[in-house]
């Protein structure tokens, strides 16, 4: 299930939104997202998907003219999918040209805009370098964010040190959230919860904050902590069904509630444990559960 997995990974989301036109559809003509034209094209390039019973379909990269350039397993990890997406862009540069808006951004955008663009395009080192050159607090917080996505906790700490005591209101919540992730990674569950535990629903990035609170509660390593974490994620899923963090929360919830030890892929075997009602393959071990 890619949505509880690679499709909930920020690096993957950014790459897809920046460089691809993504489409999903139901192979069954009776499905809510049925799409006859999409089915026609896909069956032409992958005839096996035209049968009455098919294996879980892969993710396909296709030209608008219908040429299949790449396919990635439904069970790929975030890193595998990201590599596959970047590889197809590299080997087909004609589909990787910057648009007009991007060209403008690259030359006259703010450091934040240019860093975001570089990050989306996979040049994470250049994005970080650009942010390090800026003395602005928002650049430092974004730098912490990029370092966190790369699991570079020293980098997160150094970036956040630059904004200590002087965080402008506009990025205060972002800085708190990065500090919470850092505390969680360093096994300071109480510290993580103290940073963001009392945010209200109106807070920017509330859903991500609740997700992290759940992770920190779980890390208390007690039965109570586990129940608190499950309740936190369930409440998040119930309140924010169309939020990028909801699949991440469902992924964590299902794994913890099923008692999966997380070694290898897991499946609920038909039980409806997932608050979102997902069934069958539930994804690999959620990497956030082991974050350090």
């Amino acid at each position: 299930m890619l949505r509880a997995g690679p499709f909930s990974d920020e690096r993957v989301i950014r790459t897809i939104n920046r460089r691809f036109v993504p489409l999903y559809f139901d192979l069954s003509p009776a499905g809510a997202a049925a799409d006859g034209l999409a089915r026609q094209l896909v069956v032409k390039v992958k005839p096996a998907l035209g049968g009455p019973a098919v294996e879980t379909p892969p993710l396909l990269v296709v030209t608008p003219g219908g040429a299949l350039l790449s396919e990635t397993s439904n069970y790929a990890s975030e890193d595998e999918l990201l590599s596959a997406l970047r590889a197809v862009l590299k080997s087909h540069p004609e589909w990787n040209e910057p648009g007009e808006e991007e060209r403008k951004l690259a030359t006259s955008g703010t450091p934040i805009e240019r860093a975001n663009l570089l990050f989306d395009l996979g040049d994470e080192a250049a994005a970080r370098t650009l942010l390090k050159e800026s003395s602005d607090a928002d650049a430092a917080v974004l730098l912490a964010h990029f370092c966190r996505l790369a699991r570079d906790w020293e980098g997160v700490e150094q970036a956040l040190a630059r904004v200590k005591g002087a965080v402008p209101a506009g990025v205060e919540r972002d800085a708190q959230l990065e500090r919470a992730w850092l505390a969680y990674a360093r096994r300071d569950a109480a510290g993580a919860i103290a940073e963001i535990g009392k945010w209200t629903k109106e807070s920017p990035r509330y859903s991500e904050a609740r997700y992290v609170v759940g992770l920190a509660q779980l890390r208390r390593d007690s039965r109570r902590g586990k129940l608190e974490a499950l309740a936190t994620w369930k409440a998040l899923i119930d309140c924010c069904s169309q939020d990028p963090w909801v699949y991440r929360a469902d992924w964590a919830y299902t794994q913890v509630a099923s008692g999966s030890d997380g070694h290898g892929d897991f499946s609920t075997g038909g039980e409806r444990i997932s608050p979102l009602g997902r069934i069958g393959y539930m994804g690999r071990r959620n990497p956030d559960l082991d974050l350090r």
């Binding site: 890619l2 949505r3 897809i16 460089r19 691809f20 036109v21 993504p22 489409l23 999903y24 559809f25 139901d26 192979l27 069954s28 499905g31 809510a32 997202a33 049925a34 999409a38 089915r39 094209l41 896909v42 998907l49 098919v54 294996e55 879980t56 379909p57 993710l59 396909l60 990269v61 296709v62 030209t63 608008p64 350039l69 997406l85 197809v88 862009l89 087909h92 004609e94 589909w95 040209e97 648009g99 069904s241 169309q242 979102l276 009602g277 069934i279 069958g280």
Partner: peptide, 19 residues
């Protein structure tokens, strides 16, 4: 001038947008 990224779904989609 962008490539299509297509995810065919074999196990059902819902009107709510779920799959």
């Amino acid at each position: 001038k962008r490539l299509l990224l297509i995810k065919p779904i074999a196990f059902g989609t819902e009107k709510s947008g779920g799959w």
